[in-house]
């Protein structure tokens, strides 16, 4: 557990930066992450700078081992950079204490993991409102109902995760990520364990969240079809951003993936 390099003290909230022309939900500048030391050191992130614009759906792609998960974890405040900076909602994560990071995740960040996203003892509804319960907040009226409506899980809310299919579980996880209306949602291969139909449903749901609720979403995926739901695709290779694409289609993505694979 690394500790913030800056002097410890009361929560600093560094002043949010000056308003930009396009609002930025998350940003990383010169991100470097080195695992291990000496000869066995791995440079998982090798100087990545990227902005994630609010109300946008971004997909991160790249070969296995290219640093996608590492980037996501560092952006989301689950891990710390070796050097460089990351910001969420204007807060520089490297300056926050563990507790402040926890509170920031609670307030500003939503997650969807590849699998085992849910607390097995809680039913679907309780899982959905879990971030609010943890924060000791009451959901705003209508928000939960709205999100549940979008997931199409209204009749399964009293079921425990063990009684739901993988696709349903992922949709519950997505609903949970949405319900606290976070600044940004990170999803690491959310469709990785789903068949194409369930995967499609989940992606349609995420797309809808961006379009109708103005949610900001960043997903990591290997699937060009999944990435085609995004507004923008960032391609990584060996810990660096090697290409960017706006308004992608499955075909254009496939072309880049083929090219990078060469």
């Amino acid at each position: 557990m690394s500790v913030s390099q800056t002097a410890p003290g009361p929560p600093p909230p560094p002043a949010p930066p000056a308003p930009e022309l396009v609002p930025i939900a998350a940003r990383t500048v010169g991100a470097v992450k080195v695992y291990g030391r000496g000869e066995t050191a791995v440079r998982a992130l090798d100087g990545i700078s990227a902005d994630f614009v609010s109300h946008q759906f971004t997909a991160i792609m790249g070969a296995s081992g290219s640093g996608k998960s590492t980037l996501l974890h560092c952006l989301a405040g689950l891990d710390r950079l070796t050097s460089g900076q990351t910001f969420i909602a204007g807060y520089e994560l490297g300056r926050l204490t563990d507790r402040q990071l926890t509170l920031l995740r609670r307030e500003k960040v939503g997650f969807i993991f590849q699998s085992l996203n849910l607390v097995p003892t809680l039913n679907a509804l309780d899982n959905i409102v879990l971030p609010l319960t943890i924060a000791g907040r009451k959901p705003e009226p209508g928000v939960v109902e709205g999100v549940v409506q979008m997931t199409g899980l209204a009749d399964r809310l009293k079921h425990r995760p063990g009684e739901l299919s993988g696709g349903q579980q992922q949709r519950v996880a997505a609903a949970r990520a949405l319900v606290s209306r976070p600044e940004i949602i990170f999803a690491d291969e959310p469709t990785g364990n789903l068949d194409s139909k369930a995967g499609g449903e989940l992606l349609a749901f995420l797309r809808k969240a961006v379009d109708t609720l103005g949610q900001t979403i960043v997903i990591v995926t290997h699937d060009p079809f999944a990435a085609s739901h995004a507004d923008r695709v960032i391609f990584l290779a060996d810990g660096r951003v090697v290409q960017e694409m706006r308004s992608p289609t499955a075909d254009s993505i496939l072309a880049v993936v083929r090219h990078l694979g060469d």
Binding site: T102, R105, R106, F111, V119, I134
Partner: peptide, 13 residues
Amino acid sequence: RELGLLRALGMTR
């Protein structure tokens, strides 16, 4: 795993 998930979702130590 579950504890890690809860911590990721913002449960403090």
